[in-house]
Amino acid sequence: MDRRTLLRATAASGAAALAGSLWSSAASAAPAQPGTGPYGPLGAADGNGIQLPAGFTSRVVARSRQAVAGTSYAWHDAPDGGACFPAGTGWIYVSNSETTPGGGASAVRFAADGSIASAYRILAGTNQNCAGGATPWGTWLSCEEVSRGYVYETYPQGGTAAAQRPALGRFKHEAAAADPVRQVIYLTEDEPNGCFYRFRPAVWGDLSAGTLEVLVAGAATSGPVTWARVPDPDGSPTYTRQQVSGARRFDGGEGCWYADGTCWFTTKGDNRVWAYDAVAQRIDLAYDDSLVTGGSAPLTGVDNIVGARSGDLYVAEDGGNMEVNMITPAGVVTPFLRIAGQGSSEITGPAFSPDGTRFYLSSQRGTSGASSGGITYEVRGPFR
């Protein structure tokens, strides 16, 4: 598929996936509270150890160090951030490997009926590839979660070498999210005193050059923000997060997702989900476990985040109860799935297929608690 065709296909898929989102009118609402979800309670664990609502089923797609079904390709250790991309009549799921050395990323290509067509490597020779994000032109940004780490632009279709993108800054990268309206890439930083960044490419669709900026705001959890240029994106000798006076600090930046004028990002140190309103240029809390009333917080260990076509957000836990929790546009937070018997792992890589009917995720260390025990799953069911 050539670049122009891929741009059109990915843009169409993105528009469908975001249709119907209700969050644009509710970004500054009070933080989400526990409640009954749209799919009802979780059932007993299935044969894969996953508790799901009625009508949903799971299957194992891949296991670390084992050949992906129907292929000779051994799946990578410690599967982490992931995303889906349209590919002909089927789709591709990409997944990072959070190991050092030998991180990188792999891909599984699915046929139209959901069968596995192939699996292959799209990035090698990098370190601690944690999360990342998809671009509107159909590439995957794989982020190194190491001090002065790089962002690599990779090609899910295969056949094109990954490109290092130092203009996006060298810091402890976590996730990325593209805003096609303002033509920027948002970036999170996994440090206890990390920052929230945006990259403005000199030419949209080309990440080889541009301007890196950092969010500047006061200490209040909600309110207006501004952006300031980072003088030295290389981060040496002064780290990027220490270069701009007044840069807002976030406690362990994790997942990042853009939809309908809002960029959602998570911070694990304080179990928060933030909403950056790109239109009004303000931040607000979408969820804070310390502000849950009337009982215990259902969502802790907040990590990767992805949105559905319904406007629901799906937030994976690193720890907690090994759950993926939903946050609905109505402000209800509720478990969507739970993985039993894997308490030494974390849930990573949540992503929806382009048509929104299949949901992918990984248990990074599986039942063994080791990086070599990772398991990648697919969930199907009546997603609204």
Rank of each mutant, 00 (worst) to 15 (best):
A112G: 11
S118K: 01
A119I: 04
A119L: 11
R121M: 12
L123M: 01
A124C: 04
C130R: 01
P136Q: 05
S142C: 02
V146R: 14
S147D: 14
S147E: 11
G158D: 01
A161E: 04
A161W: 01
A161P: 01
A162C: 14
A162P: 13
A163G: 04
Q164D: 12
Q164N: 13
R165K: 10
P166Q: 08
A167V: 03
L168C: 09
G169T: 08
G169D: 10
E174V: 06
A176C: 13
A177Q: 06
P180N: 09
P180W: 10
R182V: 06
Q183N: 01
Y186F: 14
L187E: 07
L187K: 12
L187Y: 07
E189K: 04
D190H: 12
E191N: 13
N193H: 12
G194H: 01
R198Y: 03
R200D: 07
R200A: 13
P201W: 05
V203P: 07
W204I: 10
D206G: 02
L207E: 06
L207M: 01
L207N: 03
A209T: 06
G210C: 02
T211E: 03
L212R: 10
L215G: 02
L215F: 00
L215N: 05
A217N: 08
G218Q: 02
G218M: 02
A219L: 09
G223A: 06
T226Q: 03
W227C: 00
V230P: 09
P233C: 10
Y239G: 12
T240W: 08
T240Q: 09
Q242S: 14
Q243S: 09
S245K: 11
S245Q: 14
